[in-house]
Amino acid sequence: MAAIVGMLAACGSVPLQEPTPVETPRGAAPPAAAVVPGTLAQPRARWVPVPWAELPGWGQDNLFEAWNAWIKSCEKPQAPLASLCSEVRRLSIGTPDEQRAWVQQRLQPYRVETLQGEATGLLTSYFEPVIEASRVPTAAFTVPLYQPPATLAQRKPWYTRQEIDTLPEAQAALKGRALAYMADPVDALVLQIQGSGRVRITQADGSQRWVRLAYAGTNDQPYRSVGRWLLDQGLVKDASWPGIKAWLAQNPGRQQELLWSNPRVVFFKEETLSDLEAGFGPRGAQGVALTPGRSIAVDPGSIPYGTPVWLASPGPQTSLQKLVLAQDTGSAIAGAVRADYFAGWGAEAGDLAGRLRQPLQMWVLWPK
């Protein structure tokens, strides 16, 4: 599957679960991999204690950039990470050496592994599109972006993408629910997959304003990658967004078929986008604004929200060795060593998000 799976899922926080020591009951068979003393367990991962020297690049990162994301996490902290927040805020004006010394004094690094002991996983990326839209339908802007229908809770799953486009009863349920209209249905799909976007809306009177369309729910249908659909049929070898759009340019008659291959539809809510809010990304599943290059989406069954994470990922698109914060999740972000890297917004971020798919290792930094 192409690296186009990131989707904000700010659909309610998942309670932080305290890691528990891994124990083998007397008389029971040992786990698949040997357990290191001090290993901590999460529902879908295990954390293995390691020395700081194991973290590749530790000591070279500019921790000041990560500190802004950490302070954001402290807006909605959970125990035991909450106890660190007064010190985190105080150290926001500290030197890099002071910040690094404090981290090593107060936190213990743990290598994140699967329950079977595998320490290498997958890193992809997501971003916030910047798009043009119209408040009312026009000859150029015909693709609606909807707020949740009033009947969403009464029918689970709700209508598929194809049914929304073709069934009179689905269209009746969405009448009057359009927030804005886009020009390109493929760009609308990208917005839905990413889960949020910065939108310059042209109003009915011709005036323009910037808003954020943020995730507000889905039709509860399964997410299916249009890139995977193309790969499975042998139609493309490059299932990045540039590759998908190149295929569509050569096969415009199959655009609707491609769109309908993903039955999931995302609904939006409109939010303000002040100058201050424009400096951060949308709110992730933790409920705090995301920081470009310092926020990741994770499986909360592997890493609780708000956890500082050392991330290492070598690859052809980018080489990352840096401190990030687990602040979001997504429908395709599942498993122990799995993360979606928030690249930011705009064309450059979109290019990285569309192509990034490379090996990943992670170490959580947990209070001693």
Rank of each mutant, 00 (worst) to 15 (best):
M1L: 12
A3K: 10
G6R: 03
V14C: 11
V14D: 14
L16P: 10
Q17G: 12
V22G: 10
T24F: 00
A33T: 06
A41Q: 15
Q42H: 08
A45F: 05
W47I: 06
A53G: 13
G57F: 12
Q60G: 13
Q60P: 09
W67Q: 03
W67V: 01
A69F: 08
K72R: 15
S73M: 09
S73K: 07
C85V: 08
S86C: 08
E87D: 14
R90Y: 11
S92W: 05
S92E: 10
I93G: 14
T95C: 06
E98H: 06
Q99G: 13
R100K: 14
R100D: 07
V103Q: 04
Q104H: 07
V112Q: 01
T114S: 15
T124K: 10
A133G: 08
A133D: 10
S134V: 01
F141A: 13
V143R: 08
Y146E: 09
A150W: 06
L152A: 04
P157A: 07
W158L: 04
R161H: 08
D165G: 00
E169P: 00
A170T: 00
L174G: 08
L174F: 07
A178G: 03
L179A: 09
A180E: 06
A180H: 06
Y181A: 03
D187L: 14
L189N: 05
V190E: 13
V190N: 13
V190C: 03
I193D: 13
Q203D: 15
A204D: 13
D205Q: 04
G206P: 01
Q208P: 03
V211C: 02
R212F: 09
P222M: 09
L231D: 11
Q233P: 01
A239E: 05
S240L: 02
I244W: 08
K245W: 02
A246W: 02
A246M: 01
G253S: 02
Q255A: 08
N262T: 03
V265S: 13
V265F: 07
F268W: 12
E277Y: 00
A278E: 06
A278I: 00
G279H: 08
G279N: 10
F280K: 13
G281A: 05
G281F: 08
P282M: 03
A285K: 14
Q286C: 08
G287A: 07
T291K: 01
R294N: 07
I296T: 03
P300L: 09
Y305D: 12
P308D: 04
L311S: 05
A312V: 08
P314V: 10
T318H: 14
T318I: 14
Q321F: 09
V324G: 04
I333M: 10
G335W: 10
G335P: 09
V337L: 04
R338Q: 12
Y341P: 07
G344D: 05
G350A: 05
L352D: 04
G354Y: 12
L356C: 11
R357W: 02
Q358V: 12
W366G: 01
W366C: 02
P367G: 05
K368Y: 09
